[in-house]
């Protein structure tokens, strides 16, 4: 059984998995370092120096926020992990986009700033939830399969609230706020499509490998771990700040 399911290049594919994982970890740590600065340079510093409508700048900032937002990317990866048809990918990603757009725009417009640590902890849990869902944990533990589309929408709403909390911290000028906000939201979707493009290429190669299904177990278990790590990290941050 073990020997028959082994692919033609077992060592190679394991090495590829290891490479992908270490790239992910490196990427996450570099993003975390970039977040550690508390001075006003960078995106926030730029935003606090300008006023008026800057559509392209805010599209760029939205896209950058998404592409460097490892928690959003992890959740997206979890959502598309077992979606083999482009049609399904489009449906689920659209549901996620609707969810996070609603709370992002409404949240900034009406100033629903939720504590960034709390919302980021919930976003960490969304990664845990989706990875467990991929592993079939709910069927095994509770004998039920929660609706995956509903979950994507609900977690999309939480991700949008997280985006809103960050944007409120950016302190965008009231002068031009609506257009800049819409541009930022459009940028988030652009960033999501760019990230998805890369994810689907990597997944495309991976899915063709004979060992995909067994490596998928490891990958989703690691995603549960990363999601838990994000959650604990944010809760610690909340406790330290309180």
């Amino acid at each position: 059984m073990t020997s028959t399911s082994r692919g033609p290049f077992p060592r190679l594919s394991r090495r590829v998995t290891a490479l992908i994982l270490s790239v992910l970890v490196l990427y996450a740590s570099s993003v975390a370092q970039a977040l550690a600065h508390d001075v006003t340079p960078g995106d926030a510093g730029y935003i606090q120096e300008i006023w008026g409508v800057h559509v392209i700048s805010f599209i760029y900032l939205g896209a950058k926020h998404m592409v460097t937002g490892y928690d959003h990317i992890l959740f997206l990866l979890g959502v598309v992990f077992f979606l083999y048809r482009m049609k399904d990918v489009a449906i689920y990603v659209s549901i996620f986009a609707v969810g996070h757009s609603v709370t992002m725009l409404a949240g900034v417009w009406w100033g629903w700033g939720i504590n960034a640590y709390i919302i980021d902890a919930i976003i960490g849990l969304s990664v845990v939830y989706k990875a467990l869902d991929n592993l079939g944990a709910y069927q095994k533990w509770f004998g039920i399969q929660p609706n995956t589309k509903a979950a994507t929408l609900i977690f999309g709403l939480f991700h949008g609230t997280g985006l809103a909390s960050k944007i409120i911290e950016y302190d965008i000028s009231d002068d031009g706020l609506l257009w800049n906000l819409l541009a930022f939201n459009a940028g988030v979707e652009v960033g999501q499509i760019l990230a998805l493009f890369v994810i689907l290429i990597v997944m495309g190669y991976w899915r063709r490998s004979e060992r995909f299904m067994s490596q998928a177990v490891v990958a989703n278990v690691i995603m549960v771990g990363l999601g838990l790590w994000l959650t604990v990290y944010q809760i610690n941050g909340f406790l330290a700040a309180a």
């Binding site: 399911s5 083999y84 048809r85 592993l135 495309g204 899915r207 995909f212």
Partner: peptide
Amino acid sequence: SSTFERMRDAMQFNAEKPDPAILPTPKQ
């Protein structure tokens, strides 16, 4: 790898093995 196999059987995945026919071809 045999540990993974056992984990896989135990977890009973929430997905089927992908049908190569619906996957993008190596050329794509």
